[in-house]
Nucleic acid binder design. Sequence first.
DNA 1: AAAATTTGACCTTT
DNA 2: AAAGGTCAAATTTT
Length: 283
Amino acid sequence: MKPEEIESDLRSIDGVVGQILGMFDNNLSILSSSSFPEIPYIPIGDMKCLVSWDSQKSEDRDKTVKNVTQLKTKRGCYKRRKNATTHTNIVSNPIDDGYAWRKYGQKSILKATHQRSYYRCTHKVDQGCEATKQVQMTEDNPPNYKITYNGHHTCKHLLRSQIILDYPDTNDTSIILNFETNGFIQNKQIDPSLSSTINKRKEGFPSLGLKHNQTSSSDHYLSVQVSKAPKDLEPVSMISHAMDQENMISTEVYLPTSGTHGYDEIDDLIDNIVFSELFKLCS
DNA sequence: AAAATTTGACCTTT
DNA sequence: AAAGGTCAAATTTT
């Protein structure tokens, strides 16, 4: 593998770690805000307020006269969630963060040469997901992107979370994950020599329209192997390398031999890597 | 045809 | 009042 490929892989892993940390951050904030009801918090799914306000607003526009009294009574609807969870990180590639975003605005920002872009979750309308992010290109070159995430995703992210992992109850520390890009999978084993369990999914995995393999339509595999890093690799925390075989992409990730990793953590990690690999495949 | 982006107006916050 | 954030009609892309 070329050094620059390895480097870019490491960078993407770095981003993934940032995202995982962000998720923990989010989850903690969610937990704390729900256990302390006195903190002002507007429920995410509460759309009634917005709907009635919107209709009022368009009437006002037609009359070109604003009804101040009604504005005041509806004003609560505009209140920003003061304690909404935010998390920012700097990233070299702003595209691949595993969520589906819809751009809804772009602004010039004072003392910034580049404009700031505003995104909201694609599933805001169909699932009421209120997650939002801003992307701001930094001044330095090569350019980086400061990404500010607001709120958390309440949507089902179709690509990422339908993957259910079963873990070996043996001392085997490696996990193999594989799935078809079309249709379903039922405990299919990709390589019997790898003594690992195979996951299965609850629901069908949506077709990704891979350009990668024209000859056969439905038998693509992605395998992710997570294992303890060999001693001589420390203190490198993680190394991932991916290789193409016929219609299989396989990625290996080493976790540090020291340090403790719960299955949830590894689950998240794999989730992210899987997504990121798929993303590469499709682009 | 449907979904995503662009862009200026509109709204809130500072 | 100025700056930042959001809406939504027009436009472009899929």
